[in-house]
């Protein structure tokens, strides 16, 4: 199958692999997909509570090269964006940037879902008392 150079670059040199403490109130975690479907993405954002800017992002992905590349790209794009700007990231932009073939479009959909789930998780934490937030920190929105 012909993979674009950009997919291969993200696969071979993935950006921002890793994890933040999911219990941290400034961290939002999105976990989407399912092992039996062959794709699971965990995407985390670290938000500055004063400015609402995503200061850092990390991912871990179980999946094909396109899934890894989609999530790696998503973390790159998230850094420096406000929450509202981040909500505007569309899967079609990922498809375009990575030149994903049609059978791999679902990888970009999953990445968009992961972004949305991470944002939702972060916002849910802001809506409750900090202590309570720490207690219910165990993940996470699973959708996809």
């Amino acid at each position: 199958m012909p993979y674009s150079d950009k997919i291969l670059d993200h696969y071979n040199n993935p950006r921002n692999v890793g994890s933040f403490d999911a219990k941290d109130a400034t961290v939002g975690t999105g976990l989407v997909g399912a092992p039996e479907c062959g794709d699971v993405m965990k995407l985390q954002i670290k938000v500055n509570p004063d400015t609402g800017v995503i200061e850092d992002a990390k991912f871990k992905t179980f999946g094909c090269g396109s899934a890894i590349a989609s999530s790696s790209l998503a973390t790159e794009w998230l850094k420096g964006k406000t929450i509202d700007e981040a909500k505007g990231i569309k899967n079609t932009q990922i498809v375009e940037e990575l030149a994903l073939p049609p059978v791999k479009v679902h990888c970009s959909v999953l990445a968009e879902d992961a972004i949305k789930a991470a944002i939702k998780n972060f916002q849910d934490k802001q809506d409750v008392e900090p202590t309570e937030s720490a207690a219910r920190a165990q993940p996470v929105g699973v959708g996809g």
């Binding site: 989407v32 399912a34 039996e36 699971v40 992905t61 179980f62 679902h106 959909v109 699973v142």
Partner: peptide, 24 residues
Amino acid sequence: RAMSPLYEMVQQGIDLKKIEWAAH
């Protein structure tokens, strides 16, 4: 595996079968 969320969860003692995954 170092990049896999599943591997990380298992290392943390999480039972993957107990998670409610949403099939897509």
